[in-house]
């Protein structure tokens, strides 16, 4: 049972990593993929949401490495100045978007699958 519970989170992390580093998908689609997998493999909505958060780790890790680098931060500053925003605001929006997209996708899938399962159960 315990081993089964690990499948969702691990798969989410794997999908997060693969879609970011080994495909040409946009990061938004990467987040949706993470959410889909988490939602599909985890029975409960809360578990699915947690898995999707774990699936966001590759994104967060890669992003951290970029902005912790001085040149990377300078690039973020440049792009932010084009939008007239603070770099931290842009960074916050970016993180919130990835995590939010992953979490809401997982919630949708989980709810829909839950409803299907419930109907089948009846």
């Amino acid at each position: 049972m315990r081993r089964k519970a690990l499948i969702g989170p691990l798969a989410s992390i794997a999908v997060g990593y693969l879609t970011l580093f080994h495909t040409t998908l946009s990061w938004q689609l990467s987040a949706v993929s993470v959410g889909l997998v988490a939602g599909a493999l985890c029975g409960r909505t809360s578990t699915a949401t947690s898995s999707s958060l774990l699936g966001s780790v590759p994104f967060l890790a890669a992003l951290s490495l970029r902005v912790l680098d001085r040149t990377g931060w300078r690039l973020l500053e440049l792009v932010s100045s084009i939008a007239g925003l603070q770099p931290s605001v842009v960074l916050g929006l970016l993180v919130l978007s990835y995590v939010g997209i992953a979490a809401s996708s997982s919630a949708i899938v989980s709810v829909v699958l839950g409803a299907i399962r419930a109907r089948k159960g009846r």
């Binding site: 970011l20 890669a62 490495l65 792009v79 970016l94 978007s97 939010g100 809401s104 919630a107 709810v111």
Partner: peptide, 23 residues
């Protein structure tokens, strides 16, 4: 969730170029 997802996808459009690997 659908509403949040739609809103986030909309907001994130301009951030497209910030892909941490290929951005």
């Amino acid at each position: 969730s659908v509403l949040v997802l739609a809103a986030l996808l909309l907001v994130s459009g301009p951030l497209q170029a910030l892909h941490p690997v290929r951005g």
